[in-house]
């Protein structure tokens, strides 16, 4: 369904349209919220708030972007404000913690075992994905979100820029750093000669 038609139905208070709206945007909102917020209860409250705010501010939506991008922006800023309020936007501190380093080492070792296996069968692919998922969650919330938006949701730099409010150049730069960090994280135990 076209965005305009969906917005019209939502403004007419059609419950079926709200269900469709949630269904269409669930993936994007979930990626943002799950990557940025660790606490399950807080996630639930935030998701409710995001949809409530989206519905309230819907009459102000001017179709300058896709409806999903607009909602993504609401989701991102809701999570960002939550993290700011809780003073959780300190990725370096988290990554420097000793227990986190131990966790990363375990992940990296397992990834090397998995990656160096020449016969990448279904099980190892699945394991690789699990390792990758764990590694992504070790990144700072913003880096993890950018990775999710670009690689899972396949959004363009421009769309990510609209969602996050960051300039396009900054998005590219952060994504470059995030990818590098992710690779380093997974391959920190690789022998140089193996590369």
């Amino acid at each position: 369904m076209e965005d305009q038609q969906l917005v019209k139905q939502l403004l007419n208070r059609e419950p079926a349209a709200f269900t469709l709206f949630v269904k269409n945007t669930e993936g994007l909102v979930a990626e943002i919220v799950f990557k940025m917020i660790a606490n399950a209860e807080d996630r639930k409250d935030l998701i409710q708030d995001i949809y409530l705010n989206a519905y309230r501010y819907l009459p102000n939506f001017r179709f300058q972007s896709k409806l999903s991008t607009w909602l993504g922006s609401i989701a991102y800023h809701a999570c960002y404000n939550y993290l700011k309020k809780k003073k959780l936007l300190l990725p370096e501190k988290i990554e420097d913690a000793e227990h986190e380093q131990d966790a990363l080492e375990v992940i990296a070792n397992r990834f090397v075992d998995c990656f160096s296996n020449q016969t990448m069968d279904y099980v190892s692919q699945k394991e690789l994905q699990q390792l990758l998922q764990s590694a992504v969650y070790q990144l700072s919330p913003i880096y993890a979100t950018l990775i999710a938006l670009y690689h899972y949701q396949e959004l363009s730099y421009q769309e990510i820029s609209t969602i996050t409010g960051l300039p396009e150049g900054t998005v590219k730069n952060y994504l470059f750093r995030a990818r590098k960090k992710l690779k380093d994280l997974l391959l920190s135990n690789y022998k140089k000669e193996d590369l």
Partner: peptide, 24 residues
Amino acid sequence: TIFTALAQQPMITFGFDITPPAEI
């Protein structure tokens, strides 16, 4: 390999129903 694995990640779902706004 990393990019391919990232793209193949399963979609995350909320795991609960969203309560529609009271106006609806």
